[in-house]
Amino acid sequence: MSFEIRLPLFEGPFDLLLFFIERDELDIHDIPIFKITNDFMAYVRELEHLNIEVASDFILTAATLMRIKAKMLLPRTEKDEEGNEIDPRKELVQHLLEYKKYKSVLSDLALMEEMRMSQESRGNIEEEVLQIANANHFEYELQDLSLYKLMRVFGKVMQRYDEEQQKPKHTVITYPYTIEDQKAFILKEVVQRQRISFSEITRTFPDKIGMIFNFLAILEMLQLNLVGVEVGEGFNDFTLTIAEGDANQVTQLHLS
Rank of each mutant, 00 (worst) to 15 (best):
25 E>N: 06
31 I>A: 03
87 D>H: 06
9 L>A: 14
37 T>S: 08
72 M>W: 00
69 K>V: 00
49 H>V: 09
70 A>W: 02
37 T>E: 00
22 E>N: 10
25 E>H: 10
56 S>F: 09
80 D>W: 02
14 F>G: 01
60 L>E: 09
12 G>I: 05
43 Y>F: 15
29 H>S: 05
84 N>L: 15
69 K>G: 12
83 G>M: 11
39 D>C: 08
39 D>F: 07
81 E>W: 00
52 I>T: 09
28 I>N: 02
7 L>I: 07
78 E>K: 10
33 I>P: 00
27 D>H: 02
49 H>F: 11
84 N>R: 14
89 R>T: 00
35 K>H: 03
40 F>C: 04
60 L>P: 01
70 A>F: 05
66 M>Q: 03
57 D>P: 01
59 I>F: 03
70 A>E: 03
5 I>T: 15
69 K>L: 14
21 I>L: 12
40 F>Q: 01
27 D>A: 10
48 E>F: 11
48 E>Q: 14
47 L>K: 15
67 R>S: 04
14 F>I: 00
87 D>S: 07
56 S>W: 11
55 A>N: 04
54 V>F: 12
89 R>H: 01
48 E>K: 15
40 F>H: 09
49 H>I: 11
60 L>N: 01
55 A>M: 05
38 N>Q: 08
58 F>Y: 14
90 K>P: 00
83 G>L: 04
72 M>H: 05
30 D>S: 07
34 F>L: 15
21 I>N: 01
88 P>K: 08
25 E>W: 08
81 E>H: 10
48 E>A: 15
62 A>W: 01
10 F>Q: 05
48 E>P: 03
4 E>T: 14
59 I>H: 07
6 R>S: 08
15 D>F: 09
79 K>R: 13
71 K>S: 08
29 H>Q: 12
34 F>R: 11
21 I>Y: 05
89 R>W: 03
84 N>C: 15
74 L>S: 11
71 K>Q: 12
41 M>W: 06
45 R>V: 13
45 R>D: 15
44 V>P: 03
35 K>I: 14
44 V>D: 00
11 E>S: 15
78 E>M: 09
45 R>Y: 13
4 E>Y: 10
88 P>I: 00
14 F>R: 08
46 E>F: 10
67 R>H: 05
51 N>P: 04
57 D>M: 11
23 R>T: 14
74 L>F: 14
42 A>C: 02
82 E>T: 06
